[in-house]
Design a protein around this nucleic acid. Sequence first.
DNA 1: CCCTATGTTCCCAA
DNA 2: CTTGGGAACATAGG
Length: 259
Amino acid sequence: MPELPEIETLRRQLSHVLRGERIIHVEVFDPKIGQLSGLRGRTVKAVRREGKAIWIDLDGVLSLRLHLRMSGRLLWRKGPAARPAYARFRFCFRAGELLCLDPRRFATAQVRRTETESSGVPDALRMKDALGLEKAARDRRLPVKTFLMDQRIIAGIGNIYACEILYEADVDPCKAAGCVSLQEWRTIAQAMARVLKIAVRCRGTSISDWRDLHGDRGEFQNHLQVYDRKGQACRRCGGAVRRIVLGGRGTYFCPSCQR
DNA sequence: CCCTATGTTCCCAA
DNA sequence: CTTGGGAACATAGG
């Protein structure tokens, strides 16, 4: 269930183990994941992230695009071992093997031509541009939290970090996006940079099943201020954290601090 | 049986 | 055509 910090963690780790490695063998255990042909013999040139998607660029013209959706995981192992439960595909390299695990089977993988131009959607990690957000939000009536999770507007923010960012910025997640002031957008942009940077440093949030490429937990669950804290004391004012549903997603906030 | 789950996409109504 | 809400996808756990 990875968001930007978790995917960025995987990207860095994949880049470290895969760069320069040649794909010796590909096995697809669950065809629902997508068609994976034409990859054997190719060498990994680079591993990139686009929002929550991972691109593995190969020599020649092809790349592998991975999206883990809700429950996808990637696992690197030195030698071949018994296939774990929920394995969807396996890539074998000289140095080890890359497994994709996914109990809910929402993850996708596609072989595509390597993209040269970027998508045009700003990445949440390198964006401090409050003006762009303010402009995109003008006249929009949907909740600001749902707006921040719209991957067509800004790439990388999911449910946990949307809650944490708005808490950090003292903004009510229910507030209509078009009613957020420019000053509030500036605060949100700052909170976004701060929260995501720390979460990347922590290698993500292991609140339930997130594990990195090597099967290790992240640390950001120890820094969560509101997510999954329904009924517990707000760390700033002591009032009770509330849980509501916005856009079908559990939303945690402090009603007295966030306005 | 109910509800919940770190995501995206499709459908429908306004 | 745009917007926003809800269901669907598939599976496990409380």
